[in-house]
Amino acid sequence: MIELDRAGRSFKVKRSLKLEGNLVHAVRDLSFTVAPGEFVGYLGPNGAGKSTTIKMLCGILTPTSGRVRVAGLDPSRKRTTLARRIGVVFGQRTTLWWDLPLRDSFELIRHLYKVDRNVFKTRLDELTETLDLGGFIRTPVRQLSLGQRMRGDLAAALLHAPDVLVLDEPTIGLDVVSKSSIRAFLRRLNTEQGTTVLLTTHDLGDIERLCRRVMLIDHGRLAFDGTLDELMATAPEQSTIEDVVTRLYTGSR
């Protein structure tokens, strides 16, 4: 479903008035494959290249080297076609219309992805039930709590029934109850509907409770790729996932 082959993305960072800038590699030689139906956690310290990877997956950044494929498509060339098959949630941002009721943002998405009216209705009813949106679907987004808004954003990303869902810190800033309801929803989505999920997070609870497979990126390269148990086995002397990951983050520096 997702395929990266030695993908790299570098940025020119200009220093003062000098014409030639320094080349910064946000991601370099990154290769991994995610099979359909997988639930993969994507970890890495701040600045490791996680968001750059995600932007390459949705086609808003073109890789400067290597190859990226999502659902068999080259994201940067087939962005529009791909958009209909991928759902993206950025936890710190929102696609919803701030001043309008939540329902109106969904209506716009129906037109944007050209979802058939009846299919849309069924899908929205389902999402309203599973994400418990009923109580605030007619409330303007600016009046929603963060947890409610996040559930709204998740629904917005799933209304067109994408095959792949890419999540960038979907539980950031949420309380334990909101977190657990979002986790439960994601687990159901993955097991019942078979949606492939790539989850980026700093909340290791998300990883422990949801991901069968974990990938860890540092300095733009893949530092670990394996199951959760294999991740824990990298540092047998550590007992918690926090300690294991801390060791990996600091050890690879």
Binding site: G59, R79, T80, A83, R93, T95, L112
Partner: peptide, 9 residues
């Protein structure tokens, strides 16, 4: 946030 705008088809 422009990233979100650019993702849209």
């Amino acid at each position: 946030d422009i990233a979100l705008d650019l993702v849209r088809p």
